[in-house]
């Protein structure tokens, strides 16, 4: 009962904040609302017994990545009217986007409601997880079964850092 209440409250907050992300004129507000969405999603992850994911959702996503966003917005010093002040040149873009989005949602809904997820049940039941601990399990899997993707991810991050530096650095004029 409490679980259902938490889901409804957090789900509503997430949806409302997501809508605000899209419709806020000022990007800094969008960023703040996005953080709120992410935090409420983190709560939902806890409900789903994915505590580790919930933790890094708050720390990495809502913390690090979103700080990066805010930082860039501050850096570029964009105010609300600067970007989207004028009239949209693509007249039908907004309408058709919303219509198509609704159709997409309808399709997703149909798929979700109508189809039953077939799949072999794994061994990681909530009881099992709570006995060992979610974080320990994730850590164990990452360094055993998924060690190769894990190492690849480190290379990816390294490449991303290099790319970001090269892209963003000022060109040195002779």
């Amino acid at each position: 009962m409490l679980e259902g209440l938490v889901f409804i409250v957090m789900g509503l907050i997430a949806i409302v904040c997501a809508i605000c992300v899209v419709f806020q004129k000022n990007p800094i507000y969008s960023a703040v609302f996005l953080i709120q969405t992410m935090v409420s999603l983190a709560v939902l992850y806890v409900l789903l017994h994915a505590e580790f994911i919930a933790a890094i959702q708050v720390m990495v996503y809502a913390g690090a990545i979103m700080v990066l966003f805010v930082f860039v917005i501050m850096l570029l010093n964009l105010s609300s009217g600067d970007v989207e002040g004028g009239k949209d040149k693509l007249i039908l873009q907004k309408t058709s986007a919303i219509i198509l989005g609704l159709i997409l949602f309808a399709v997703i809904g149909v798929v979700t409601v109508k189809t039953v997820l077939h799949g072999t049940q794994g061994e990681y039941t909530p009881e099992y997880i709570s006995r060992i601990g979610n974080t320990q399990l994730v850590g164990k899997l990452l360094f055993t079964d998924y060690v190769f993707p894990f190492e690849i991810a480190s290379i990816l991050l390294f490449a991303a850092v290099l790319g970001a530096i090269i892209l963003a650095k000022k060109e040195i004029k002779e």
Binding site: K89, L90, Q93, S96, A97, L100, G101, I103, L104, V107
Partner: peptide, 14 residues
């Protein structure tokens, strides 16, 4: 316009 292309992509995906 990139947005327009994205719209087409969405349309195709749907």
């Amino acid at each position: 316009y990139v947005r327009n292309y994205a719209l087409s992509m969405l349309f195709g995906g749907v």
